[in-house]
Amino acid sequence: KRMYLVCPMSVSPYMDPNKSGPQIWEEFSTSFTPAVKEVVEFAKRIPGFRDLSQYDQVNLLKAGTFEVLMVRFASLFDAKERTVTFLSGRKYNVDELRFMGAGELLNSVFEFSEKLKALHLSEEEMSLFTAVVLVSADRSGIENVNSVEALQETLIRALRTLIMKNHPNEASTFTRLLLKLADLRSLNNMHSEELLAFKIHP
């Protein structure tokens, strides 16, 4: 049995060895469900999102929820203190988490969080960026690519206008922000592989 679940969306990384795989899975699911619901509520408030087909709304959320959570919870990863804060509010040291089996994904998440924080985005900018993360026409299984693409372009234009207005002397901010989209894809893929391994070997 796996003894650790190194994900801050869990209450604790320590798993009860007396619990079965499905029990651990159910507890984990219960702990991250409120955060997923918040992502759905956020999506509903994106102008135009509800006009997409139900099928595309679900697929965008399925594909993008991890990335949205990564942006929203970047502050849980403190690279200076070398800690990760879990749902219980308890901080765990990186070395401790490495001992529990955390590897390359944790390094990459720290790197991403630091770069995102370095952009010093306002709440409004972060919100619009999160909408751009979610509404991506190149997610797999999108049935009406044109509609998603049109909404994505509107959101990117709005983000660009806002960033240019708020950071007139930092011309690279918008570009650096768009590059974060690729970083998030990469993190999402790494995370999916970990999830799969966890499901196979809980």
Binding site: V36, V40, K44, R50, A63, T65, S192, L196
Partner: peptide, 27 residues
């Protein structure tokens, strides 16, 4: 690889959270 979102039960959570919206809006 297999669909991790479905494995996690994520799709079910998402559908339920969206449901209120879908009830009053034709697809």
């Amino acid at each position: 690889f297999a669909d991790p979102a479905s494995n996690l039960g994520l799709e079910d959570i998402i559908r339920k959270a969206l449901m209120g919206n879908f009830d009053d809006k034709p697809d």
